[in-house]
Nucleic acid binder design. Structure first.
Lengths: 214, 214
DNA sequence: TGTATTTTGTACCGTCTCGCATAATATGTA
DNA sequence: TACATATTATGCGAGACGGTACAAAATACA
């Protein structure tokens, strides 16, 4: 018996007993690889061949698992948002002093935007807004949701700070939040153009000073 | 003594006597059409066929006049920058009070970003930063130049205001300029996601108040 | 064991892509 | 008129693109 057994060392889908031939890929892992590619090159400049190579899935499997290229992009974006939310949520909820909290939020953001061995990848929400959001209503809705989520999180942040009297009564949490989001957007874009981290950190410092000097 | 030393030193502008078959297109006008397309869809999602149709030039003419697609993109971007500069320069140089000046600058920016019958086209510098700037060093250099140009113009603006005592001595023109640029970037991105003008104007108002509040 | 079910791998389809080769056309000049 | 020059118009060609048909492979279940 010359059978070359290629059993999956790790069960792809935890312990569920599936009926047919087992999957040779791990969906979450493959989606992460797809996200990496989309973040690097954008939707139009990423080919299914590259996606297939990066995920280790051949094209039919890719299609069966995630749908066509556009659906894969949407699912990748959802994954990005979930990851970013997971990284931020805890800091947003934290009870640290407002300055410390802002510093940590922007530091995590910079980590996300500057990561990538082939160059900084920026913010996927911003990239998607700049490219696909104009013509595709469904994607646009997701992007708008992304903006609102960030705005709201910042606004809540400032509202708490105001209650704790870390900000004067005259401070408007919504305006401050828009400024914080603007800072996020400008460092995301500049990161994409390879502006060095030091400069981006300087921008963040200036913005924080301005926001808290009230 | 050579009498035929008269090489066409003068550009073949309107009244110059060119040698062969006359052009059927106007280069500046065609470049404008190309820019429109690139702003709408980005580099990768714009095909030479579409460019050919929009400009009214067939592909070989397009190629002969502007080079390949990438060169055409670069020339389109240069044109965009020149247009934006022409629209802004005068306001930046003006002697209006700082608040009025900022209001006018942002209003013009919004006009640029929201124009386009097929949806708002955003800021081409921002779009290029998000897409081509990562992998293409030459384009990246142009984008960085675009960022600096805006930062410097704003900084100069605040410096003048400070000299005229419209700002307190403690105000840092560079930090304020970064905030102004950040506001430009955030409205450019949000415009691309079809956020209505009213909301963008509210963001601008909040930012100006924050910048000028002493 | 045999059958049903699910995924994989290969190979292909029609379409679009960019860039260029070639020939026709329209002008200035000798 | 005849020639040189510059542009237009047609269309080709090699490859990349997204998506899918089909059969082999690998599992669960009866």
């Amino acid at each position: 018996m010359v059978q070359k057994i290629k059993k999956p060392v790790v069960k792809p889908d935890s312990t569920a007993k599936r009926r047919g031939r087992p999957r040779a890929y791990q969906p979450e892992l493959a989606l992460g690889k797809a996200l990496d590619l989309f973040r690097k090159h954008g939707f139009a400049a990423t080919s299914l061949d590259e996606l297939s190579a990066a995920t280790g899935m051949n094209r039919p499997s890719l299609y069966g698992a995630f749908g066509d290229k556009r659906e894969l992009y949407i699912k990748s974006y959802a994954r990005y948002r979930a990851d970013a939310r997971a990284a931020m949520q805890e800091i947003f909820r934290d009870e640290l002093p407002i300055r410390k909290r802002l510093e940590r939020i922007f530091a995590v953001a910079l980590d996300i935007y500057l990561s990538g061995e082939a160059g900084p990848r920026g913010c996927f929400t911003v990239m998607t807004a700049a490219s696909e959001a104009v013509a595709d209503p469904e994607i646009r809705a997701l992007v708008l949701e992304g903006f609102s989520e960030l705005d709201d999180a910042f606004a809540n942040c400032f509202r708490i700070a105001k209650k704790k009297h870390e900000l004067p009564a005259s401070a408007d949490p919504v305006v401050l939040a828009q400024l914080a989001s603007a800072t996020i957007h400008t460092i995301a874009i500049r990161a994409r153009a390879r502006v060095p981290r030091k400069q981006l950190e300087a921008i963040v410092r200036g913005a924080i000073d301005l926001m808290l000097r009230a």
